[in-house]
Design a protein around this nucleic acid. Structure first.
Length: 214
DNA sequence: ATCCCGAGGG
DNA sequence: CCCTCTGGAT
């Protein structure tokens, strides 16, 4: 994709959502962090169902530590990989209390040192909670970057590097948001909805899928 | 490369 | 019934 096409690509996605909300959907960076840790290999619907009760019981890291691993596990039972996730959420909360005064650190290194937090989760927190110009390459963005030809790469890390190299400065802050929504609702894994895709003309994916018969 | 591991969709 | 879903650690 040429730089002009890349510019157009983002201009079109941005036009669909010109002023993405910058307020957190969760009350605090801590709750966002926990929600993203829980979202690994899980559906967003499953996480959205479990988090209200979890955060009602433990809104911050102090309460999460007090709640204890067993009760956390109980509250996230309906999500896959719940054993690992309960352990990580509890351990991570304890570290925030011990090392960061109960706050969420704002650097990639500190975030990635937390249990259950890898590069993708760290990048989401940095972007969504702290407004940094990072792009978290999850399966949605990995697929969109490769399928469209926007920023091809064989590994998520390679795609992230490619994205950071091609995203025009004006779009860097919200590129993550626009790309993930595009992947979630239009450029779907099984059956991309090319017939209603706003960037189909710029996309390398072939054959473009036709609209389903009524 | 393998394990973790429930819910929902096709 | 089989597969995927906003991964991370070993």
């Amino acid at each position: 994709m040429t730089p002009q096409q890349t510019e157009q690509f983002f201009a079109i996605l941005a036009a669909a959502d010109p002023e993405p909300r910058t307020e957190l959907l969760y009350d605090t960076p801590f709750q966002l962090l926990v929600a993203v840790v829980l979202s690994a290999q899980a559906t967003d619907a499953g996480v959205n169902k479990a988090t209200p009760a979890l955060f009602a019981a433990a809104p911050g890291p102090a309460e999460m530590v007090a709640l204890g691993e067993d009760r956390i596990r109980d509250l996230v039972k309906t999500i896959g990989l719940f054993n690992t996730k309960a352990k990580n959420v509890h351990a991570l909360s304890a570290i925030l209390m011990q090392q960061y005064g109960g706050t969420v650190p704002e650097t990639r290194e500190a975030l990635q040192a937390l249990p259950g937090v890898g590069r993708k989760t760290a990048n989401v927190v940095l972007n969504v909670a702290f407004g940094q110009e990072t792009c978290a390459v999850d399966t949605h963005i990995f697929r969109v970057a490769n399928r469209t030809g926007l920023a091809p790469g064989k590994t998520p890390d390679a795609v992230e590097d490619a994205l950071m190299a091609v995203i025009p400065p004006a779009y860097r802050r919200h590129a993550h948001h626009w790309l993930i929504l595009h992947g979630r609702y239009i450029c779907i894994a099984r059956r991309p909805q090319c017939w209603r895709c706003p960037v189909a003309a710029l996309c390398a994916y072939e054959p473009k899928t036709p609209a389903p018969l009524p």
